[in-house]
Nucleic acid binder design. Structure first.
Length: 231
DNA sequence: AAAACGGGGCT
DNA sequence: AGCCCAGTTTT
């Protein structure tokens, strides 16, 4: 009979492609500029920043980064640092009690393997402070593979735009969310697309009071069409 | 005072 | 898959 089975989710290829296109047009002109996003940013800066960004605003990290890099210019500097001094350095951006031992543990394990990040997810996630998000960041920035920087902001944007209903599990185990993200990233420009999604989520698709009327995605956004425009 | 912020870890 | 944890900023 050759009856095609229903798609695993309701997001069409056309809507994925449209979303992608809008992001790629928007980003080069409107994307946020951060020290870790500039052309010459090395892998140390790209990855250490991801630890600093955990549960911490990007603007806060941007203002703090020069001071941090002056004291800790590489993984070996963090690895050999006095833990109390590292904690004192991290105090201004918060979460220092948890973040300082985590960051030093990561640095020490990294130095121990010659600062060569594993390519396999299960090996990455064995490293201190490396969960699903940081493993994805590593695969994206170090190994050049298309993986999403799936944080709560990106999740919120994708759920609203594609009308992906939230499940009870947290975003790390939300299959529909990750499926949509991987489809968006699958055909090139993964880093720019990730940054564009984080930027639009932070600037327009805010949690409490989203700025839908100014959002560059509103024309094709399900949330805007069905929950905002018709009010 | 509560929610938000470019999550990780342990069970 | 569920629960806890963590500080500074924004609402």
């Amino acid at each position: 009979m050759n009856i095609s089975k229903p798609p695993d989710n309701s997001v069409s290829d056309r809507r994925i492609a449209l979303f992608r296109k809008k992001l790629l047009v928007w980003f080069p002109v409107n994307g946020r500029v951060f020290p870790w996003r500039v052309k010459g940013a090395g892998t140390y800066v790209l990855l250490v920043v991801e630890v600093l960004l955990q549960r911490t605003r990007a603007e806060t990290v941007a203002a703090f980064l020069p001071h941090f890099l002056q004291r800790y210019s590489g993984w070996s500097a963090i690895a050999s640092s006095n833990l109390d001094e590292l904690a004192a350095t991290l105090k201004p951006i918060g979460l220092w009690r948890r973040r300082s031992p985590a960051l030093q543990g990561l640095a020490q394990e990294l130095v121990a393997i010659g600062e060569k990040w594993p390519r396999r997810r299960d090996e990455l996630e064995k490293i201190t402070a490396v969960g699903q998000y940081l493993a994805n960041a590593t695969l994206l920035f170090i190994h050049g593979e298309p993986h999403p920087l799936m944080d709560s902001s990106m999740a919120r944007l994708l759920r609203r735009y594609f009308f992906i209903r939230p499940v009870k599990a947290d975003i790390r185990y939300d299959r529909a969310l990750h499926a949509a993200a991987y489809r968006i990233l699958a055909s090139g420009h993964a880093i720019e697309l990730n940054w564009a999604m984080l930027d639009i989520a932070a600037s327009y698709c805010k949690s409490r009071k989203p700025l839908c009327v100014n959002c560059p995605l509103r024309q094709s956004c399900m949330h805007y069409r069905y929950l905002v425009k018709l009010r």
